[in-house]
Simulated assay, not measured.
Amino acid sequence: MTALSLAVTDSATMLRRQLRHMLRYPSLTVQLIGMPVIFLLLFVYVFGGTLGAGLGGAAGAGGGGRDEYLAYVTPGILLMTVGLCATGTAVAVAMDMTAGIVARFRTMAISRSSVLTGHVLGSMVQMVLAVAVLLGVAVAIGFRPDATPLEWLAALGMLVLISLALTWLSVALGAQSKSVESASNAPMPLTLLPFLGSGFVPTDSMPDWLRWFADYQPFTPVIETLRGLLLGTEIGHNGALAVAWCAGGTVACFLWARRLYERAPVR
């Protein structure tokens, strides 16, 4: 068996391990799926009437109000969903690092990268489930994207790219954390950055100093790309920036996570 086929086989085994954990302990998965839905309903029905009235044509729909805000905010909450799923990955990696299971894996004839890859693939499964549920709820309450099948495919690809980058970052944070508690807090900025971008309000409504950060942080081009694909708004250079951020982040975080996993003492 070649090294590549061994890595693929072992990664599939580790993925099955993660899926069994999800089935045996469903509370974390339910929380990761439920929180974005709660945020969506909160922002649409509590804040949507006021915030939507101030959007103008930013959402790509006319009228202003709650329906327009639903169209505007859904891409931002999609990205928040990916961030929440990545947070769960950091916790799972930290549990493996602190519970001694990694020491056992290191004595076995398995691909070293498969342990981390299994965590990443398991997180991707959670992300797909969470995104599907969120989109289902959004459509049920009035979200009406006008994307073509090709644009839907591109939007899904964008979500996969950002999910890979954030998940490998969370794997690294989990491997670096000294406890499960610290691992659960380390990725929290991932769920807050959409608030400091164009996820919930247009950046031109912000003070100049905050607008500069909001325009140039990584999440804003991803959100604008998703919004353009789903709603037909202008994407401009955001698509290229989003792909560059995701590709660079994935490679850098993968190398960081692998180095931490190889060098970290088993606690």
Rank of each mutant, 00 (worst) to 15 (best):
T2W: 07
A3R: 13
S5Q: 13
S5V: 10
L6R: 15
T9V: 08
T9I: 09
T9S: 15
A12H: 04
M14W: 07
L15Q: 05
R16Y: 14
Q18V: 01
Q18P: 04
Q18H: 11
L23Y: 10
L23V: 12
L23I: 08
Y25R: 13
T29K: 04
Q31L: 13
M35H: 07
F39M: 11
L41A: 08
L41F: 07
L41G: 03
L42E: 11
Y45W: 13
F47N: 07
L51A: 09
A53Y: 06
G54D: 12
L55N: 02
G56M: 05
A59P: 00
A59E: 00
G60D: 10
G62A: 14
A71T: 09
Y72I: 05
V73S: 04
G76E: 02
V82H: 02
V82I: 10
V82D: 03
G83C: 06
L84K: 02
C85D: 03
C85A: 13
A86R: 00
G88L: 01
A90D: 01
V91G: 01
V91Y: 03
V93Y: 04
V93T: 05
M95N: 15
D96K: 01
I101L: 15
T107Q: 14
S111C: 06
S114L: 07
V120R: 03
S123Y: 02
V125P: 04
L129E: 10
V133W: 08
V133Q: 09
L134M: 11
L134P: 06
L135N: 08
L135A: 09
L135M: 14
G136A: 05
G136Y: 06
A138M: 05
I141Q: 03
G142I: 00
G142N: 05
G142P: 05
A147H: 06
W152M: 08
I162W: 12
I162K: 10
L166Q: 12
L166G: 08
L166P: 12
A172I: 01
G174K: 00
G174I: 00
G174A: 09
S179H: 07
V180Q: 04
E181D: 15
A183N: 01
S184F: 02
A186M: 09
M188H: 11
L190I: 05
T191V: 13
T191E: 11
T191H: 08
L196A: 15
G197T: 01
S198R: 03
P207A: 09
D208V: 13
W209G: 15
W209Q: 15
R211Y: 08
Y216A: 04
E224S: 10
T225Y: 04
T225K: 00
L226G: 02
G232I: 05
G232C: 12
G232E: 13
I235D: 06
I235V: 11
N238T: 05
A240K: 03
A242E: 01
A244D: 06
C246A: 14
V251C: 10
A252K: 10
A252N: 10
F254K: 08
L255H: 14
W256Q: 11
W256Y: 12
R258W: 08
R258M: 13
L260Y: 07
Y261R: 07
Y261T: 02
P265H: 05
V266F: 11
